[in-house]
């Protein structure tokens, strides 16, 4: 039972990550491979505040989101003026820099040793430490993010994001400050990824840099593409598929090292198949087969 709940918690955390990336990638057309960096910034900020200063989880989560949003401006302000391919390259560089900070700034992050002993969150004296309680905790934040994104994307604000995705020049000709819209969408996307990072850190109570590599960014991007970008159910389907499918490998008798490699092959193959045969993913509104 605990194993199933654990998987469901991971689905909820990844749903939050996927829905946040979907705002940038699916709705606005910003191809970023730095999502794991923002996920890590949230996890490290809230963990360090909790472990070193005993800061409560609410403040820790908000601080993580703020740090990620500010970091997103550092990336987006210079690079979103450029062509979208250059933005992707800049996001790759950003991901590598942030990972190296996690890995090498040992005085702050303990480097590869990670940060152990992250205390479970408390709400008005209620300590959240059982798997079922964590499931509710993670689902609450995932639902909140879903609500936020749906509200944004169904509004005139979201209509401008869709216009930027389809034809930025047309949006500019209509008087839309597309750079501002892109920076805001990217900052919200980063802040929600940081929220997922904080929830993850409180859940596992130990974090290290290996959870925030570029492979993680690619996994999250694969979830968006396979689930389907821009649609309400796409993120949930993508997260559930890519969290649950590899779990099957555990029951097929493969050793953990082989299973890990098979997982990468599975993600890669699914991605290629979807882009070729179903560019809108399982339940997407926008395609990637341009």
């Amino acid at each position: 039972m605990d194993y199933i709940v654990h998987i469901l918690i991971l689905v909820a955390i990844y749903s939050l990550l996927v829905v946040s990336l979907d705002l940038a990638l699916g709705h606005t057309g910003l191809v970023s491979v730095a999502h794991a960096a923002f996920y890590g910034l949230g996890a490290y900020t809230s963990s360090l505040l909790a472990v070193r200063f005993g800061v409560t989880f609410g403040v820790g989560i908000l601080a993580g989101m703020l740090v990620a949003a500010l970091a997103s401006f550092l990336l987006s302000m210079p690079s979103l003026r450029l062509h979208e391919d250059y933005f992707m390259i800049a996001s790759f560089g950003f991901q590598m820099i942030v990972f190296n900070i996690f890995n090498n700034w040992t005085e702050l992050t303990h480097g590869p040793l990670g940060i152990p002993g992250i205390p479970p969150p408390r709400i008005l004296g209620w300590k959240i430490d059982s798997p079922l309680e964590f499931l509710l905790f993670a689902c609450f934040f995932a639902s909140l993010a879903y609500f936020l994104i749906i509200r944004l994307t169904k509004s005139p604000f979201g209509r401008v994001l869709h216009a930027i995705r389809e034809d930025e020049i047309f949006a500019q000709a209509l008087g839309k400050n597309t750079l501002r819209f892109k920076m805001i969408a990217f900052a919200i996307s980063a802040a929600l990824a940081a929220l997922a990072g904080s929830v993850y850190a409180y859940y596992v109570s130990f974090i290290d840099p290996t959870s925030f590599t570029i492979m993680e960014s690619i996994l999250i991007m694969s979830m968006v593409i396979i689930g389907g970008a821009g649609g309400p159910w796409g993120p949930l389907i993508g997260a559930a598929m890519l969290v649950m499918l590899p779990e099957e490998l555990r029951f097929m008798g493969f050793s953990s090292s082989i299973a890990a490699n098979l997982r990468q092959i599975l993600y890669g193959s699914l991605l290629v198949i979807m882009v070729i045969f179903r560019p809108r993913g399982m339940a997407g509104r926008f395609g990637f087969g341009r």
Partner: peptide, 24 residues
């Protein structure tokens, strides 16, 4: 140059200036 993935009226609505809910 149009946004072909949204409806005809949404293209015109997109073009309207100074929309309150275009602010975050």
């Amino acid at each position: 140059r149009l946004i072909t993935a949204i409806s005809v009226i949404e293209n015109v609505l997109l073009s309207r200036p100074n929309q309150t809910r275009e602010h975050l």
